[in-house]
Design a protein around this nucleic acid. Structure first.
Lengths: 112, 112
DNA sequence: CCTTCATACCTCGGAATGCTAGGCATAGCC
DNA sequence: GGCTATGCCTAGCATTCCGAGGTATGAAGG
């Protein structure tokens, strides 16, 4: 995956993962890698600040837990977060369709 | 269209427009608006620097022209630009598919 | 015991990018 | 003359992603 292609869409991805159940930061990274078929392999320096940002914005809630001597911070979607996910998903679809529309006019050098 | 959702994908859009024929800056903005069904209404402060960047990178070539007393700068895809368009389009499709894959796991509150 | 690796968290600073806000100039219309 | 549309430009700000570095625990291997 080319550098910083996901600019502006990271929030949507993180919210999507957490919509399927609470998870901690490291787990979010693994989920994204798994669900995207290895396309998204995000560095920690990308994901952790994003989680903090989303919590700051009230879209996530977090809770510390101790699991076999390891401290973890588990994130969960808030009600606002659930709403934001719906909004962001719509925005993504609109955006994606718009890009497709622009691209559809471009001659494509491959067989159809 | 929500603010700066197109981060990182602007180049692809501009190259796509210019792949369909030479055009000047103002025209690129209009083309994008038209082809996207008004989804993309980009400010000049976004598009002009992008054109300069792409020319700097060798993906575009430009030429000044005088049309009824108005000076215009007409941009054209270079060979490199044509190659970059292919690369960027592939990258977009990969990215788009990856996002879709992640989203596909999210329960969607609307009828399918 | 000690090293190494995987897990798990964090932050700082750089780099890129888009946008707001301003400016300049010409043509056409009222 | 004034206003709008066309057509170009730049400076500086804000946001965002990422590389690099730091901390700490547990398990595995020697």
């Amino acid at each position: 995956m080319k550098g910083q292609a996901l600019k502006g869409h990271l929030d949507l991805l993180v919210l999507s993962v957490l919509a399927q159940g609470p998870c901690h930061g490291y787990g979010v990274i693994e989920q994204l890698r798994a669900r995207s078929g290895d396309a998204f392999d995000l560095p920690e320096g990308t994901v952790y600040p994003a989680l903090h940002r989303l919590e700051q914005a009230g879209l996530l809630e977090s809770e510390w837990s101790e699991d076999s001597g390891r401290r973890r911070r588990t994130y969960r979607l808030s009600e606002s977060g659930r709403g934001a996910l719906v909004t962001e998903r719509s925005a993504w679809e609109e955006f994606s369709d718009a890009v497709s529309a622009v691209l559809s006019g471009v001659p494509w050098p491959r067989p159809t």
